[in-house]
Design a binder for these strands. Structure first.
Lengths: 206, 206
DNA sequence: CATCATACCAAACAACTGTTTGTTTTTCTA
DNA sequence: TAGAAAAACAAACAGTTGTTTGGTATGATG
């Protein structure tokens, strides 16, 4: 067996990469799927919903994706990619101090999760177990991102014996759960992020 | 119209309270529903799943509940009741200092959410929007509990200008999200709770 | 013992689900 | 401009969904 490259989104599309036509409605399909998955969840979205929003028939989706779950992987992967692309610049800014950099990373995370469109929301909204056949791939994609996020925490100058893993779980949980209570128009993602980080940094005990 | 009492769980059951027989399988139904809702989610659970686990036929469930969503409300309300019952004692312990009391409340919250059975998990797992017809009631139930939780935070001696609402959202989010990564057998709920509260109380910045 | 609400069964309903199969139209390329 | 590949249609499949309807044992009650 020849060594294979890391699997990408297009591995799940059925026809090989060669020769794509310009009028393909694949982007429409992905956008529609992302919208429905983000708003209604994976299980509550039907292939007919997606096909209808993309202006085609349900069966036609199977030209691009072997199954509904394969379509989810594609959307999910794109979501991770977008959040990563939003967060990486904030993480790379080496000149700012670690705490404000963490705040910026959190702000970017929140933005990609709450405002930057549907793809990012899917990553938080959809539970891997909801698509058993591809659950492992989804989890791997999520872990891949969380490792990036963890870098912002590892860079913090913390007192010795601080549980950095717990700190990551706590912060990431607080951020992700915001999808439950966040309402657009109120506090912006960056405001929320700064507020959360400040609660961690400043001493609340006497 | 005569003034009505606040709606309770049994309002959703079809027959009036008068004359209940002792061999009713209603508890079995609720337990089975809670188990499936907690493990697979609301939308991924069928009435046949629940009926089968309770040893009856799907149609028979409609003797107790007018719809699948009404059944969810019953389970959800019971879940809120159980978590509340677990948390209230920890909240009422007036002798211990506010910070350890908060830790105890969080530990109770986590226990009711991760270990104390399925009812509690349903409250966190199921999103109100998944059952549109009863979404408002579910949200109201959840808010009712969160108000209790908030008392533990209001009692904290915090520096002036501390955003207590943000603190509540952050802590509750971190706790609730633990359903995603928690694995039984590792750190216990009370250990996790103490760890999270300590991260908030102790100064992490220099 | 007669009665009656309780608690369920049995069977079906229409609507919807993901998916397949064969065919047709459209676009790019040689 | 002929041919091939790409992109989609059209129609159906088998299974599952929540729910309804009419009937029937069963236990409590007078």
């Amino acid at each position: 067996m020849p060594p294979e490259a890391a699997p990408t989104v297009s591995d799940l599309a059925r026809p090989p990469r060669t020769g794509t036509r310009s009028d393909s409605r694949l982007p429409l399909v992905l956008d529609a799927a992302a919208r429905f998955f983000a708003e209604k969840g994976f299980g509550y979205t039907s292939m007919r919903d997606i096909a209808g929003a993309a202006g085609m028939l349900p069966g036609s989706l199977y030209y691009y994706f072997a199954s509904k779950e394969a379509l989810l992987v594609a959307v999910y992967a794109e979501g991770v990619r977008r959040i990563t692309d939003t967060v990486l610049p904030a993480l790379g800014a080496a000149e700012v101090d670690p705490w404000t950099r963490l705040a910026n990373v959190c702000a970017a995370h929140l933005a990609g999760l709450l405002e930057d469109g549907d793809y990012g929301q899917v990553v938080i909204r959809v539970r891997p177990e909801d698509a058993p056949a591809v659950a492992a791939r989804l989890t791997a994609l999520r872990d891949e991102y969380e490792a990036i996020f963890a870098q912002a925490i590892d860079a913090l100058p913390l007192p010795p014996r601080t549980d950095r893993r717990a700190l990551k779980l706590m912060l990431l949980g607080a951020l992700n759960w915001s999808q439950t209570w966040y309402r657009p128009g109120k506090d912006s993602p960056s405001v929320l992020a700064r507020r959360f980080v400040r609660l961690l940094r400043d001493p609340l005990g006497q």
